[in-house]
Simulated assay, not measured.
Amino acid sequence: MGKRRKNTLQLSLNILPIDERATRLAVEEYLEEVRQYRQIGFVRREAAITQAYSYREHQSTNAISKPTENIALWNVDKEAELQAKDRLVEMALGKLSSTQREVIQRSYLDNEGEYDFVSSIQMSISDRTYRRVKVEALGILAVALKIEQYQTIEHDKSAYSCEWEVG
């Protein structure tokens, strides 16, 4: 057994006011989108109606609807966004330890959708250790993907209000 190596990124997470629940949900949503992209690829939108080439008078706003152009732009932009997200997840997974990477891969990126206790048994670690490693890995991924959610500090507005008596 060697000395346990502590990730320096983990140490800085404890001092930031991060909303852990919202951050976990954001990372899980991000990973789910990447998993779907890897599993089925990009599904393009298609125009439902073929546009006519005849000129049509518009309302007084002179706004022209361009649904085919909007769909084409969305297809190009969304596919590029998903490819960038996939590359970013791969780079972020490279920063994790091998155990953390395997936990994230099994929990979020594999197609099987196994329960955590089954994955922990297959990895020969306890369920508690599995969950601890998973939480640590999600925190690191949140920072690496720049999607961490911070807690909002709400000030008591009544402490700052002042009423003046006019008499």
Rank of each mutant, 00 (worst) to 15 (best):
Q10N: 14
V118T: 14
Q10P: 02
R44W: 08
R56G: 04
P17R: 12
Q10M: 15
A47T: 07
Y150Q: 09
M1N: 07
K6A: 08
R44N: 13
L13F: 11
I104N: 00
H58P: 02
Y37C: 01
R106Q: 07
Q149M: 14
E102D: 08
E163K: 00
V118M: 13
T23L: 02
T152P: 08
Q51W: 06
R5A: 09
K146C: 08
L145R: 03
E163C: 00
A22S: 15
S65G: 05
K134S: 06
Q83H: 07
E112F: 08
Y108H: 13
K157Y: 10
R38I: 04
A159E: 15
D116G: 13
A92K: 01
L109G: 04
D77V: 04
L25G: 11
E32M: 12
T129I: 05
Q36P: 02
K134N: 03
S158I: 06
E136M: 00
I15L: 13
L11K: 15
R128W: 09
D86M: 01
L88G: 01
S60Y: 09
R38H: 04
E28C: 11
T50W: 07
E90T: 11
S161G: 06
Q151I: 11
N7D: 15
V27M: 13
R24P: 03
Q36A: 12
C162E: 04
N62T: 05
D156W: 12
Y55T: 09
K78P: 00
E112W: 08
W74I: 01
H58V: 13
A22W: 01
N111H: 13
E165I: 00
A84S: 08
T99M: 08
I15G: 05
M1Q: 06
K78T: 04
R56V: 01
I49G: 04
L141C: 03
K6I: 15
L16D: 09
Y130V: 01
L9S: 08
S54P: 00
G41V: 06
A22Y: 05
V143A: 02
S60M: 04
L93E: 03
E163W: 00
A63W: 07
Q83R: 13
E33F: 05
E112Y: 14
S98F: 10
V166R: 09
L93A: 01
V34R: 00
L96Y: 02
R45A: 10
S107G: 02
K85T: 02
L16A: 14
R5P: 01
Q151S: 11
K157S: 09
G139Y: 00
Q151P: 05
R132L: 12
Y115P: 05
T152C: 08
Q59L: 04
Y115C: 05
L11N: 14
V118F: 06
M1H: 07
L141Y: 04
V76S: 10
I147P: 00
L93V: 02
Q83P: 01
E57A: 01
N14H: 10
L11T: 14
S60G: 15
E102N: 08
V27G: 07
R87K: 09
K3P: 03
V143H: 03
V76L: 12
K146F: 11
G139Q: 00
L88W: 03
S54N: 10
